[in-house]
Amino acid sequence: MQATVTDTPSDVAVLRLSGELDADTASDLHKLLAELLERPVPRIVVDLSDLKFCDSVGLSAFITAKQVIAARGGWMSFAGGNRFLVSLLGTVGLSRYFAIFPDVDDAIAAAQM
């Protein structure tokens, strides 16, 4: 898995993931999320458009981060997931806890409403 973080003018961090998020790469995601969670009010859009695969270990990183984000009054949403990932998020019930948008721009626009 490769990851980059881009800050937007609206103070939203876009975390772009590519490749495969699994047991071998989840620790990298945990580190990145830990840095983002240091912000006073974490606002994160996870761009899944180039992520090809995610297993349960990867999903658990998002669940753990969600608890910290909620406690700090922030939010995390997903954008651009392929059919497999959107289906996976729905199957495991994460679509009830995270907003899922077609693309990053839609996710950022929804946050500003």
Rank of each mutant, 00 (worst) to 15 (best):
P102T: 10
V12T: 15
A70L: 11
V46F: 00
A3P: 03
L21I: 05
A13I: 09
F84D: 07
F98Q: 03
Q112F: 08
E38Y: 04
Y97M: 15
R39A: 09
T64F: 06
L36M: 07
R72A: 10
L94R: 02
L94A: 03
V68K: 10
M113L: 15
E20N: 08
L29P: 14
G90R: 06
L94Q: 02
P102C: 07
G74R: 05
V86Q: 07
D22R: 00
S18P: 01
L37W: 10
A79Y: 04
W75I: 03
P9T: 04
Q2Y: 13
D50F: 12
E35P: 02
F84K: 05
F53M: 05
R72E: 13
I69Q: 00
L29S: 15
R96Q: 15
R39P: 07
C54Y: 07
R16C: 04
D50V: 05
P40E: 08
I63C: 09
A65N: 12
A26P: 03
N82D: 06
D11I: 05
V46Y: 00
L48P: 05
E38M: 07
F101L: 04
V57Y: 02
A65Y: 10
I108Y: 13
Q2V: 09
F98S: 04
L36I: 08
D55Y: 00
K66M: 05
D105R: 11
L51N: 06
F78I: 04
V104K: 07
L85G: 00
V104Q: 10
Q112W: 05
A26V: 13
T25N: 05
T6C: 06
F84C: 03
A70K: 11
V92W: 08
T91M: 14
F78Q: 04
V86Y: 02
A71M: 11
R39S: 10
F84M: 12
V68F: 06
A13K: 13
T8E: 14
E35L: 03
G74N: 09
A65R: 12
E38V: 07
S95G: 11
D50E: 14
L37E: 09
W75A: 08
A65F: 11
K31D: 15
L48I: 02
T6R: 13
D22P: 05
R83S: 11
L17I: 06
G73D: 05
I44R: 10
S18R: 11
L85R: 01
I63P: 01
S18W: 03
I69R: 01
A71T: 09
I69C: 00
D105E: 14
T6F: 13
L88V: 05
Y97I: 13
I63F: 01
D106C: 11
K52W: 02
D103W: 08
A26W: 10
A79V: 09
D50R: 08
L21Q: 02
D28F: 07
A109E: 15
P40D: 09
D11E: 11
V14C: 03
M76V: 03
W75H: 08
E20D: 08
W75R: 09
R39Q: 07
L59Q: 09
S49I: 06
A23R: 10
G81R: 01
A70D: 15
V68P: 03
A13M: 08
